[in-house]
Computed example of a mutant assay.
Amino acid sequence: MEAVATLEWIAGLPVAVALRRSATFYIFVNAAHILSIGIIIGAILPLDLRLLGIIRAVPVAVIGPFLSRAAAVGVALAIATGFCLFSVNPLEYAGNPAFLTKMSLLALGVANATLLHLAPQWRAAVNGGPLSWRVRLSGLLSLAIWTGAVVAGRWIGFLLE
């Protein structure tokens, strides 16, 4: 019962009300969410491909820190805009399997990136050292997780009633 009350409270937030009342505002927030996802994928995909050794032309020390920061900004913006979109109809989204899958993958993606950036192997790689199996595995997981999150995000609309 408390979860329902929380979801109803979210639906009553001023941003939720404004988004429901203004199609234009909703379009702009939705577009910002899509652009945020573009920032994430645009940063993560080349970084992961570099970590996997598929792209070798640019050293990890050169692109790793920049692309990691860009992806973090994209994630922060996607979470902010995604929460706004969620607030429009939280009761329905909370029961949507695709939404729940996307949220789980988002959490896994952030956890994977956090664990990688805390690892000494990452610090070694961005300082010009070798790419360890730990760094490569994180890149592979990241590629799968973020791709899955995008697919799950697209799937959401197909499961809404």
Rank of each mutant, 00 (worst) to 15 (best):
V4A: 12
T6F: 07
A11R: 13
G12H: 07
V15M: 15
A16K: 00
V17G: 01
L19M: 15
L19P: 04
R21C: 00
A23L: 08
F25I: 12
F25R: 08
V29T: 07
V29W: 08
N30I: 02
H33R: 06
I34Q: 09
L35D: 00
L35Y: 08
S36W: 10
S36I: 06
I37E: 03
G38H: 08
I39H: 06
I40L: 15
I41Q: 07
A43I: 11
I44F: 10
L45E: 10
P46V: 07
D48V: 05
D48C: 13
D48K: 04
L49Q: 08
P59M: 09
A61H: 01
V62Y: 04
P65A: 05
A71I: 02
V75K: 10
V75A: 13
V75T: 10
A76C: 14
A78I: 11
F83I: 07
C84E: 15
L85P: 10
L85E: 06
F86H: 08
P90N: 11
N96V: 00
F99M: 13
T101D: 00
M103W: 05
S104R: 03
L106R: 06
G109P: 01
G109H: 02
G109M: 04
A111N: 03
A111R: 05
A111H: 04
L116Y: 08
A119P: 02
P120Y: 09
Q121N: 07
Q121G: 08
A124V: 05
A125P: 10
V126K: 14
N127V: 00
G128N: 05
L131G: 06
L131S: 12
W133R: 13
W133P: 10
W133E: 14
R134I: 08
R136Q: 11
L137R: 13
L137I: 12
S138H: 01
G139S: 09
S142M: 00
A144S: 04
A144Q: 00
W146I: 10
T147I: 11
T147H: 07
V151P: 03
W155P: 13
L160G: 01
E161I: 13
E161H: 14
